[in-house]
């Protein structure tokens, strides 16, 4: 099943982002919408390049290696996109 169609998987990703990016004081998994932008000034979540690096190391547990920061930001546009990148089918 594509990652974006798996609610439990998307919640797991949200929990990972909250934990790895030290966001627990501000967000719970249910506070993050599947389609909202994760990066940038206009993003409510407000991740930056250091967060991207942290997450890229953390997702190695899914046997995914992302070494290009531009790729990282592209695939992490939203939770939905990131879930599909981590689990395309």
């Amino acid at each position: 099943m594509k990652g974006s169609l798996d609610e439990a998987f998307k919640r797991e990703i949200k929990e990972l982002i909250i934990e790895e990016c030290d966001l627990a004081d501000r967000f719970r998994p249910e506070d993050i919408r599947d389609d909202e932008p994760l990066f940038g000034r206009n993003s409510r979540i407000g991740l930056d390049s250091i967060d991207a690096l942290q997450i890229s190391i953390a997702v190695q547990r899914y046997n995914v290696n992302i070494t290009d920061s531009k790729v990282m930001r592209r695939v992490m546009t939203s939770i939905r996109d990131f879930a599909d990148y981590l689990r395309p089918e």
Binding site: E20, D22, I50, L53, Q54, I57, A58
Partner: peptide, 9 residues
């Protein structure tokens, strides 16, 4: 393993 970026910084 690689150090976690926040820890390293």
């Amino acid at each position: 393993s690689l150090p976690m970026p926040y820890s390293f910084i």
